[in-house]
Amino acid sequence: MAGALAIADTRSQFTDLFSVYQWLTVVVAGIVFGLVLFALVRYRRRGNEYPRGKDKHTVAESIYALVLTAIAITLVTLTFRTEDKTDAVAANGGVRVDIVAFQWQWRFGYPDYGKTVLGTTEHVPTMVLPVGTVVRFDGISRDVIHSFWVPAARFKRDEFPKRHTKFDLRFDRVGTYIGRCAEFCGLRHTNMDFYVRVVPRDAFQRWVKS
């Protein structure tokens, strides 16, 4: 099913891009903190002096603004490239999963297999998915806005009433991951959790038929 589809694992997409931003953040913070500290130590008032320096430096500031613009364009370009992959929708195929969010539970349906998982107050629902396979999600809410968030996948998407939200994901690692509703949805928003259990493909086939 995975075949030649361009759907990538969102976690590694996120990690690659985040590390660029994180690196930039640390460098910029280091430079600014260093300059502030330098100014405070080096230019601390000692006597009653009145410094006389230039009031502006238009050339330096213009070059600096151009450098900032270049940084912004670089970041935006990297972001667009990653987002194209994160938001990509496969041409066809994949496992279809319907998400129904409602105050304050989830229902996951597998239309191709006639299987449904429903969460209850005693029972946190578990969505079982095959590893390395495109999963085509179709989500809707029955009441207010909810948000389908799997922290380990570094991805979330809001679920609206009266309108379907469609997105494709792929999970490349076997394991059980926590999922949460991320959009505040009223009294028991705190408890609106679910699990995603990613299993080998044959195990998935056995599970849907069970």
Binding site: F18, V28, A182
Partner: peptide, 26 residues
């Protein structure tokens, strides 16, 4: 100056949709 910078730099992170997909509403 020092602390707003941290807010500003993390702001650049949340301005990127694929990064915001994870950290939004957290």
């Amino acid at each position: 100056i020092v602390l707003f910078l941290i807010g500003g730099l993390t702001g650049i992170i949340v301005a990127s949709p694929p990064l915001d997909y994870h950290v939004h509403d957290t």
